[in-house]
C-alpha cells in the first residue's frame, strides 16, 4: 500500500469558509509538506485527517482504513504535533506521559527517555513554563515514542527561532532514515520545506492547487521577468499571474518548458521558490 493518507473529494463547509473537493494522497516513506497562506484550509484539512472534523462529503482514508470502523487502529499508528500546547497546562511531562502512554499499545518508554535526554527536557517542570521550542520538543518526544508510522504536524515551526527550526529539520531527517515513516507537515514558512520536503501540496482558499514532488515543482514553475512589450494575449496564456510595473513585468508560469520556448532569451527566467508560488497564487489563478 503506497498511500498512507488519501482524501477523496473531501468537502467541508463553514459559515464563512470552505474546503472544497479536496483530493490528496500522501505517499509512504516521504516528507510531505503542506503549504498555504494563513486561513487557506491547512488546519481544517489536518483536522479531517485526524477525524477531529468530519467532512460533509467525500472520504478520508488513513493506512487504507476509514475512521468509521478503524478509529483506534489508525490513531495507534499516528503521532501528532500541533501548533500550541494541547497537553494539560499545569502538568509536568512525567504526569503527561502517565496519561498519554497507556493510551498506546506500542508505547516505548526507552525511546521516550532517549528523546527526553536528547532534547534536555525537564520531567518535573510544569509544561506551562516551557518555552515555545521546549513545548514543541515535548510534543515531538511524545509523538515519536509509540513507533508511529505517520507523523502529522500542524505548523510545528511557527514561532520557533531559526536555530531551533534547523535542529528540528535535522531531527526529522534522522527519523526518516526508517523508510517506513511518513511525515506530513503544514507550514507557512516555506524555507523549511526547501530543504527536506519530498512532496509539496499547496492549498489556496480551500482548494488544492497542486500536489507534486519538489522536482516536478521546480521543473514546472518559474518566474519570468521581461519588458512589457513581450506581453500579448497569446504570451499571457503561459502565466498563472502577472505583476506589471512601470519598468516591466514579473510573472509566474506553471509551464517552464513552454515559457522557455515562447520567450527564449528575450526574458529572464528564474527558478520559482515556494514563496514565489504562494505569493503569485494569492492573487488567484488567471487560467487553469
Amino acid at each position: 500500500m503506497d498511500n498512507v493518507v488519501e482524501l477523496n473529494n473531501v468537502t467541508k463547509q463553514f459559515k464563512d469558509f470552505s474546503v472544497t473537493d479536496l483530493n490528496l494522497q500522501v505517499k509512504r516513506g516521504f516528507v510531505h509538506g503542506f503549504i498555504g497562506a494563513n486561513g487557506a484550509g491547512k488546519s481544517t484539512t489536518i483536522k479531517m485527517m485526524m477525524n477531529l472534523l468530519k467532512p460533509d462529503a467525500g472520504d478520508v482514508k488513513v493506512f487504507g482504513l476509514d475512521y468509521k470502523s478503524h478509529e483506534k487502529e489508525i490513531k495507534e499508528r499516528i503521532g501528532f504535533v500541533y501548533d500550541g500546547n494541547v497537553f494539560f497546562e499545569g502538568m509536568n511531562l512525567k504526569d503527561i506521559k502517565r496519561i498519554v502512554a497507556p493510551a498506546y499499545k506500542h508505547w516505548d518508554d526507552d525511546v521516550f527517555k532517549k528523546y527526553i535526554d536528547q532534547f534536555e527536557l525537564p520531567l518535573n517542570k510544569s509544561i506551562k513554563r516551557f518555552s515555545k521550542g521546549m513545548q514543541m520538543k515535548a510534543s515531538l518526544a511524545i509523538a515519536l515514542s509509540h513507533h508511529a508510522e505517520l507523523i502529522i504536524m500542524d505548523e510545528p515551526t511557527a514561532g520557533l527561532d531559526p536555530i531551533f527550526r534547523r535542529e528540528l529539520l535535522e531531527l526529522l531527517q534522522e527519523i526518516m532514515i526508517d523508510g517506513n515513516r511518513t511525515i506530513f507537515f503544514s507550514t507557512h514558512i516555506t524555507t523549511d520545506l526547501d530543504r527536506i520536503a519530498d512532496y509539496i501540496a499547496f492549498i489556496n482558499k480551500g482548494q488544492l492547487i497542486f500536489n507534486k514532488t519538489i522536482h516536478e515543482v521546480s521543473e514546472s514553475y518559474a518566474i519570468v521577468k521581461g519588458r512589457k512589450e513581450l506581453l500579448d494575449r497569446d504570451t499571457e496564456k503561459a502565466f498563472v499571474n502577472i505583476h506589471q510595473s512601470s519598468v516591466g513585468f514579473e510573472a509566474l508560469t506553471d509551464d517552464l518548458a513552454g515559457a522557455e520556448n515562447t520567450f527564449g532569451d528575450s526574458a529572464v527566467i528564474e527558478r520559482a521558490t515556494l514563496e514565489d508560488i504562494m505569493y503569485y497564487m494569492k492573487g488567484g489563478m488567471q487560467h487553469v
Partner: peptide, 19 residues
C-alpha cells in the same frame, strides 16, 4: 551510503537522493 542516510547527511530531501 543508503539514500536516506545520504539525504540526512546532506540535509536534503530523500526524493532528491533517490533520483
Amino acid at each position: 551510503p543508503s539514500m536516506r542516510k545520504l539525504a540526512k547527511d546532506l540535509q536534503i530531501s530523500v526524493i532528491t537522493t533517490k533520483r
